[in-house]
Design a protein around this nucleic acid. Structure first.
Lengths: 200, 200
DNA sequence: ACAGCATTGTTGTCGCCGCCTACATTGGCG
DNA sequence: CGCCAATGTAGGCGGCGACAACAATGCTGT
């Protein structure tokens, strides 16, 4: 019998993208710990060393995943922002977009914020991460200009908002809180953030 | 030549505790990823299978580490709480204790909140985690009784405070923010939390 | 005292992993 | 059209987690 002609050409065409797609699928289904380059290669139908041509090591693949995660998160935040809206609906929308992304991509979010990235891509990742905060920075700047928000160090004000939202996302993601409960209580949460815990 | 008599008796005495101590040291120095049962065994001077007698698998060891982490965190929070103090200094003290623990034990904190625990110890861990929130629950209850804090669903109010503090700790821990900067801005952060972002 | 047993530690092995090197195939450029 | 860089393959190395079979030890009941 003549050997079957290979159904797939020797060169894959876009192995890098295929690997990233498969990796993200595995990440979503079985978690970061279950991600192995060899299994990834098997799933993609290439040899166990092929991924090494596109990612110098496993961490490089994780970095690439994290980067694409930030890109999607930033896109989601940008789409959700309503620069013309009043403060409360605007920040609520941003927060909802952030928490929704977190709940939909818990493992990816953990990866994005895991403090173990290669130094070089680290700068690229840091840029993307700062861009995520960018929506909140803009919001605070606009609101301060309109007098809708307390004056004072914009960085501190932004941090207060971002930390609250990120903390909520983290607690919803790591199983401490039920994601639906967090999303359901989001409006109230933002209200408390804006009006404070002290009675007025 | 007669073989050297073993300097250490065949039975270690308290291998479990020794493993946990060594593991936490490694965790602090080289991170979770660098934790291997075999290296742990070597460092402790036992065979590579000995840890298996005390932890059924690697996850069981991680669970035990996380549990001890919660115990120390809860102790730190309990010590830092000043039930007689006014709201703002009291919550600031708690927040400082929480963030300080986070900054001093970043890898451990990540482990504590990693959503990958064995189901059985999971309940034990969940209990310990709820205990951590307990300090904040108490604080909110007291403050509501004294009228120092907004009325309404105590759970929502507690969550607002806890999410803010946890988010701050997370951002300080994962490299997004400089830990010193977070600790330095903590008083202001708590003030914003209490008085809100809206001008009064 | 001591036999029997559960506990705890050891040795050896299996399969999987990440990473490396040497080699094969391919596509593109001069 | 020939050469070279890019991309994929095959094989191997050391380390890992898990398991099984075996050995040393301490405990307990009589």
């Amino acid at each position: 019998m003549a050997p079957m002609p290979p159904s797939r050409p020797y060169h894959h065409g876009d192995l890098r993208a295929a690997l990233l797609a498969s990796a993200e699928r595995t990440l979503r289904e079985k978690g970061t710990a279950a991600l192995s380059l060899r299994e990834l290669a098997r799933d993609t139908g290439v040899s166990h060393a092929a991924p090494g041509r596109h990612f110098k090591d496993k961490q490089a693949l994780l970095d690439a995943l994290a980067l694409s995660g930030f890109e999607r998160l930033n896109q989601a935040l940008a789409s959700a922002d309503l620069p013309e809206a009043a403060l409360e609906p605007r920040i609520t929308g941003l927060a909802r977009a952030y928490v929704t992304f977190a709940v939909d991509n818990p493992e990816l979010l953990e990866l994005m914020y895991s403090r173990k990235h290669e130094p070089d891509i680290g700068t690229e990742l840091a840029t993307a991460a700062e861009l995520s905060l960018g929506s909140f920075v803009l919001l605070v700047a606009d609101a301060q200009r309109r007098g809708e928000i307390v004056q004072g160090d914009p960085e501190a004000v932004t941090l207060a908002a971002a930390a609250g939202v990120h903390g909520l996302a983290a607690l919803a993601t790591n199983g401490t809180l039920r994601p639906e409960a967090v999303l359901a209580g989001l409006d109230q949460h933002i209200h408390l953030l804006l009006y404070g815990l002290k009675p007025r």
